[in-house]
Design a protein around this nucleic acid. Sequence first.
DNA 1: CTCCAGGTCTCAT
DNA 2: ATGAGACATGGA
Length: 285
Amino acid sequence: MPGQIVFAAPFDLAATLASGQVFHWDNPSPGTFAGLIGEDPAVLHQPVPGAPVEVLVGETATVGHYLGHDHDLPAIQSTFPRDQHIAAALAWSPGLRILRQPRWECTATFITSSMKNIPAIRKMSLEIRSRFGQRTEADGHVFHTYPDPDTLAAAGETALRQCGLGYRAKSLASAAGAVASGAVDLAAPASAVSLEEARAHLTALRGVGPKVADCVLLFAYGRTDAFPIDVWVERIVLELYLKKKHKKNRTPAKVRAFAESYFGPHRGYAQQFLFHHARHHLKAR
DNA sequence: CTCCAGGTCTCAT
DNA sequence: ATGAGACATGGA
């Protein structure tokens, strides 16, 4: 039932929902966010960062789980290296959290994310939802669920292309088919012991490479040791940490090796702070 | 109008 | 293993 969620450590709802890990939330008025958590409508309000989150629509338990209410942020942040770049990112949005998103929804939206900016990813996602999802309504807000694998597999590549997916339509249709048929089991990564094994389950899907797999593991499976490396994060690591290194030490493999050894056991969390900070302060090249 | 976007796949060294 | 191109579309 509706109520209030008090976080043990400062929480920033707006930063969390606008940090490029999820794309479908609406922001109808300052501090208010409306969206679906799986199939459940949610309308949340936080007047200012750090304040309790008012759940106007939705179950507080469901919302809390989605928002990572149980994450011990101070403990997680204490594992980060103490350098000026991490410090700046933490100061910029101390209440940023990693969400617990539904597996398929997260996988599918990140399959469509390659070579698209965040507004475009959002637009494709909303188009897919409104065309193929189930319509629900709550408190005057209209929502559309993210269509399940069977629905998208049945829709097919051509229909997905009409949602603006371009070449990604083929990947999404293929991935939907693989999950719908059971060829790929999205429960498998959750019980994988190693990160590598978890990643392998996901990269079996067309359109899922190392970067998308790490995003999904981080944003849907709670693997905070997964460290997605996109153009932004690669730039951050190269510019801020490997600036003076010789070319030989500035390859993608070296960036990955550095990240895995430097940022600690919750490096995915560190990555999200750095990414969110950089997107607001670094100029596109 | 040009540039570029939270990459992946394929095929070449 | 590492590198170069192709890939579709739309936001800025």
